[in-house]
Nucleic acid binder design. Structure first.
Length: 390
DNA sequence: TCTGGGGTCCTAGGACCC
DNA sequence: TCTGGGGTCCTAGGACCC
């Protein structure tokens, strides 16, 4: 989707279309999306709201409507799945489609692309762009270059010529750090990389990255899709397609840094409850609990603990998080953000709970389930720990 | 009033096992 | 005068993506 979050918000405010509009970027926040007029002023998603306001003070700032994003995201994913079941959703607003099997039914890739674009436009009122190629990374690059509202095809015989003059940083998967490192090595363009044998690349940047970089530069990275829909507002898991997620987590930046243990732990509990609920909804449980703490100076650490068996129980995850927190002995250190993540997820059906002698017949797991039932019936947040009451 | 939140994958060292 | 080699698991950090 083109400028997804901004485009969705502008459906309700069409009069703002030609003005610079920024979604998100409130107090301590970053820009979720900027429409093209705002981008003309240099505003980009991911940029701090402060910086965006400096670049474009006249921009209209809209608060994100996550319900709308989630609805549109699911609808667009459905449009993709009408084309092919081979969909790899990479984010709420983007996916790879393997259309090799759809040709006889739906026509050439370009015809399929135009059809998808028309349906998304007509049904959802937003525009999107499509890149077509034989591999993931080249398709991704083509779609970026097709924006906004366009289609770009890169046939295999044109890939090498197209990639050659580009900066290595344009390759999908080569970020800021790796780009800088490659530049230091004298590898500035994709052509510079293709001149080197894979063994030399591996020797210079490491075995894995070297092989990956070599494939990216030659346009020969993977073409098979993973149907796991990661972090896409949970729709992948809910639709039952593909593998389960590998981890689930939640984190939040405080409105003001806090050095108070009770305040920090209250937030940890709130985040834990949220994550545990998502685990239960997805019918998975996890063994490793990771606590993330970001300090006032932005230094960020993680501490993790692997339990004897997977859990989806709020109090068990929270207990682990508290142990991790207290082991840090923060005492008066300013905390900017805390996060809780559960990894090593397995389907709950596969978890055999080990009985403990003397254990109560009913425990926290029953409490969680009761809370879940109440939430389904009366809305989330109707039952919560007393410490989280306002 | 600098710098969000959701993820995946890789690396590297140490413990542990055979 | 000694301490191999292969594997897995755990932990912490970091790069990257949107």
């Amino acid at each position: 989707m083109d400028a997804f979050y901004a485009s969705v918000m502008l459906r309700e405010r069409p009069e703002l279309r030609d003005q610079p509009v920024v979604v998100g970027g409130g107090h301590r926040g970053v820009v979720l999306a900027a429409n093209y007029p705002a981008r003309a002023h240099g505003v980009r998603s991911g940029m701090s709201g402060t910086q965006a306001r400096r670049l474009c003070p006249q921009a209209v700032r809209l608060a994100p409507d996550y319900d709308a994003f989630s609805t549109v995201s699911a609808a667009v994913l459905e449009v993709f799945r009408r084309v092919t079941p081979l969909v790899e959703a990479v984010s709420p607003d983007e996916a790879f489609l393997d259309v090799r099997g759809a040709a006889r039914r739906l026509g050439t890739p370009v015809e399929i692309a135009e059809r998808v674009r028309a349906v998304v436009r007509d049904e959802q009122g937003i525009t999107c762009s499509v890149g077509i190629a034989a591999t993931i990374s080249v398709a991704k690059l083509a779609s970026r270059r097709a924006k906004p509202d366009g289609v770009l095809v890169l046939p295999p015989d044109q890939v090498a010529g197209y990639l050659a003059p580009l900066d290595v940083g344009e390759l999908h998967g080569i970020g800021e750090k790796t780009r800088a490192r490659l530049h230091e090595l004298g590898l500035v363009t994709v052509a510079d990389v293709t001149e080197l044998p894979v063994a030399v690349l591996q020797q210079r940047v490491g075995r894995h990255l070297g092989a990956h970089l070599h494939a990216l530069a030659h346009g020969t990275d993977r073409s098979e899709l993973t149907t796991r829909a990661t972090g896409v507002f949970g729709y992948g898991a809910r639709s039952g397609a593909g593998e389960p997620d590998r981890s689930m987590g939640a984190q939040e930046t405080f409105a003001r840094d806090s050095a108070d243990r009770e305040t920090v732990l209250r937030e940890v509990l709130r985040l834990t409850a949220k994550v545990a609920r998502r685990l239960r909804t997805a019918e998975v449980a996890g063994r490793t609990v990771t606590l993330t703490v970001r300090f006032s100076d932005f230094r960020t650490i993680t501490r993790s603990r692997t339990l004897a068996e997977p859990t989806d129980v709020t109090q068990e995850i929270y207990a682990a998080a508290v142990v991790l927190h207290d082991a840090l002995r923060l005492r008066g250190v300013g905390v900017r953000l805390v996060g809780v993540r559960v990894e090593g997820l397995v389907p709950r059906a596969r978890v055999e709970r080990q009985g403990v002698l003397g254990e109560r017949e009913h425990g926290w797991s029953d409490a969680d389930q009761a809370v879940d039932r109440a939430a389904r019936r009366f809305g989330s947040g109707v039952v919560r720990p007393a410490s989280l009451l306002p």
